[in-house]
Design a protein around this nucleic acid. Structure first.
Length: 194
DNA sequence: TACGTGATCACG
DNA sequence: GTGATCACGTAA
């Protein structure tokens, strides 16, 4: 079952970040399906300095200012595409970054995209998982219940297994870098920094 | 630890 | 226009 708009729209990004653990991200590119279970997320709010939306609307972040339930994909360091889920209401620019997946469907195609044969750590990081699933800038701004990129109900994750920690790679955000808004499934080997 | 890589953003 | 910066990954 695909998650509906109500899962994202009007919802706090921290709550959605936790709720997304265990859910499955699917892509269907040129008819080929790949999917992975979300094992690591980070919440971003326009109210704090780590967010792209902190300084207001720009060409890059404009989809964050729309209603929840669409993707926000952008190019990072000129090389990596990063995939976010927009949450909350229009005008409240909140989002959740997907940082790691556990491969579930179409592993052979993911290996091909990653140019490796070993099914290890190929989706353990925000830049890698988009490459493995074929997500790129053209998916930016698309609702997450369409036919090329979507999210489905997955495995239930008990609250006890959800671990909070500080977000990665945002030292520039000063004290906001300390917010415990990174969520991982404790013990899962596919998280980005074990 | 160092650096590739290119769009983006805040300046003028 | 231009230059600094960057929600990363890999090699070393």
């Amino acid at each position: 079952m695909k998650l509906e708009e109500s899962f994202y729209a009007g919802k706090d990004p921290v709550k959605v970040a936790k709720a997304l653990l265990g859910k499955f991200i699917f892509t269907r590119i040129r008819g080929k399906v790949t999917a992975g279970m979300i094992v690591e997320t980070e919440a971003y709010s326009y109210r704090e300095r780590a967010s792209h939306a902190y300084r207001g609307k720009t060409k890059r972040n404009r989809v964050m200012f729309g209603a929840g339930g669409v993707s926000y994909v952008y190019l990072c360091y000129g090389i990596h595409h990063l995939f976010n889920v927009v949450t909350n209401d229009a005008g409240i620019a909140d989002a959740v970054l997907i940082r790691a997946l556990e491969p579930k469907i179409g592993e052979d195609l993911m290996l091909k995209r990653m140019k490796t044969k070993k099914l290890t750590r190929i989706t353990s990081g925000p830049g890698k998982l988009t490459k493995a699933l074929g997500i790129n800038i053209k998916h930016n701004g698309k609702p997450l219940w369409e036919d090329e990129l979507w999210i489905e109900e997955g495995l239930p994750i008990s609250k006890k297994k959800i671990k909070a920690s500080a977000r990665i790679g945002i030292d520039y955000a000063g004290s906001d870098a300390l917010l415990p808004w990174r969520f991982t499934i404790e013990g899962n080997v596919w998280v980005s920094k074990p």
